[in-house]
Design a protein around this nucleic acid. Structure first.
Length: 295
DNA sequence: GTCCAGGGATTCA
DNA sequence: TGAATCCATGGA
């Protein structure tokens, strides 16, 4: 696949906008009716038609993309109806699925995913995107795309060579030392990200949580979005809000009760269900609150 | 349990 | 339009 070439994938039950815009990945932006982003040093433009997702390669800083790069990243072969059938049959889940059926979990590169979510702590999605733009512009390999350049995600070795002050110029604040220690752990071999594929969810989570700045929530995001461990269930501000409002509308549950509920209610693909709830409350809560305010 | 660590987007008044 | 709040948190 050379720059300028185009491929097309027939798809069913796929919502590209919900998938790329639901806060799992931070390097995809909507341009007119297409989505542009960088994956493994390749700058793609994706479009959804009623029957297909088409992909155009706009530029690359590496010779050839892996043959199944997009198929794997976009999880085109995932059996979505089967996954949705494992969700609990209750009103909140039905509403969430009805609102964004076709939303898929991506399969991202572990290093990029780990760095992105270390940057995510107490940041809004727009700000996380801004941090990552700066990080890539300053430390990523340039990708020639037409007149201007885009940038690959910086390698662990490149970030390990940065000073904390250099990282702070990317507006990541107190997260800079966390990124630096993660980069050094990966570069030194102390943390082998490729090895986590073969570990159980609990073991892989524990390995990630050994990193300074990575707690349960960030570890679960990486397990879910990079390793496809669909029993991982990240609970952030929005998911906590969703669980409380949708499942415990009368009385606020204790933290322990909520945790137990999250770990037991959603079945083998709990992480997938979590993503539907996350996207659902984020895209619907404002209007719903507006309605409540009018009552 | 409490406090603190960027900083800008978003909401509020 | 200036102020207040919030944010895919985790560590001390």
């Amino acid at each position: 696949m050379k720059p300028g070439t185009q491929v097309s994938f027939p798809v069913r039950d796929y919502d590209l906008a919900a998938t790329l815009g639901s806060g799992q990945a931070f390097r995809w932006r909507q341009v007119d009716h297409a989505w542009e982003g960088i994956l493994s040093g390749h700058h793609f433009r994706l479009r959804q038609t009623p029957t297909d997702i088409s992909a155009e390669l706009l530029g690359a800083c590496r010779p050839h993309p892996a043959p199944d790069l997009l198929r794997h990243f976009l999880q085109l072969d995932a059996d979505l109806p089967h996954i949705l059938a494992t969700f609990p049959d209750d009103e909140p889940m039905r509403a969430a699925v009805a609102a964004c059926r076709g939303l898929r979990l991506l399969r991202q590169e572990p290093w990029e995913c780990l760095v992105s979510f270390i940057c995510s702590s107490t940041k809004q999605i727009v700000q996380i995107q801004q941090i990552i733009v700066l990080l890539c512009e300053r430390f990523g390999e340039p990708i020639p795309v037409g007149g201007d350049a885009s940038f690959a995600f910086p390698t662990a070795a490149r970030l390990a060579a940065c000073s904390e002050a250099e990282l702070r110029t990317c507006k990541m604040g107190f997260r800079a030392p966390y990124i630096l220690t993660a980069a050094k752990a990966v570069t030194s071999g102390k943390l082998d990200l490729s090895r986590l594929h073969n570990l159980s969810t609990a073991e892989a989570r524990s390995a990630l949580m050994n990193l300074h700045g990575v707690g349960r929530k960030i570890a679960d995001c990486v397990l879910l979005f990079a390793y496809g461990k669909q029993d991982a269930f990240p609970v952030d501000v929005w998911v906590r809000r969703a669980l409380t409002e949708l499942y415990f509308p009368r009385r606020r549950p204790s933290e322990k009760r909520l945790e137990h509920f999250a770990n037991t209610h959603f079945g083998p693909n709990a992480g997938y269900a979590q993503q539907y709830l996350f996207h659902y409350v984020r895209t619907h809560s404002r209007s719903r609150r507006g309605e409540e305010a009018e009552l």
